[in-house]
């Protein structure tokens, strides 16, 4: 009996297969693999940011050096809406973003508690805790960088994806 390819099709597959070959595949599986469960809790702050939140934060260039009370409240409300489970103490201490006001300004920082927006010139140093976020804020891939009290930074991409950088 031959199949369409002309080969003999009657040759059956042996049910008792090649033990050596099989052992190569199966024996490798029983190697113990270490697995440790992290005890850290899922961080609510790592959720993808919404378009509305992104728009509120990235629209800061239009204001002056000081936020109006209304703008500040709008930002706090936006953060509250975005992260309802997070207390105001856990809010970012500052948000650093690329400044589009033009030369000589390079980046700006937003202090939510102080209600201040500050535009920094190219060679003007930022406070140390915010300076760490400067290079990332200038990168076109990120909309802004949230800096937290514990030194953690969250780089927010333009599509809202959050990347956590430990302090």
């Amino acid at each position: 009996m031959q199949d369409e390819t002309g080969r003999s099709g009657i040759m059956p597959r042996p049910i008792i297969t090649d033990k050596r070959k099989k052992s190569v595949i199966i024996a490798a599986d029983i190697r113990p693999v270490e697995k440790t469960r992290s005890a850290s809790q899922t961080n609510l702050l790592n959720k993808k940011r919404s378009d509305r939140y992104l728009a509120t934060i990235t629209d800061l260039d239009t204001g002056g050096h000081t936020l109006t009370e209304e703008t500040r409240e709008a930002i706090v409300a936006a953060i509250r809406d975005e992260l309802p489970e997070v207390t105001i103490e856990e809010f970012p201490v500052g948000i650093v973003a690329c400044c589009y006001l033009g030369d000589p300004y390079e980046v700006h920082s937003l202090s939510i508690s102080g209600g201040i927006i500050y535009h920094y010139e190219v060679s003007e140093p930022m406070p140390a805790e915010l300076e760490r976020a400067r290079t990332l804020a200038l990168h076109p891939n990120y909309a802004f960088i949230e800096v937290y009290r514990d030194g953690t930074m969250r780089a927010v991409e333009k599509n809202g994806t959050v990347i956590v950088l430990r302090g």
Binding site: T135, H139, Y142, A155, T161, V164, L165
Partner: peptide, 15 residues
Amino acid sequence: YKEITAENRQLVPHE
């Protein structure tokens, strides 16, 4: 990968 990339970009000195 995104975290590795961001960490590398953070290494770039501003000044």
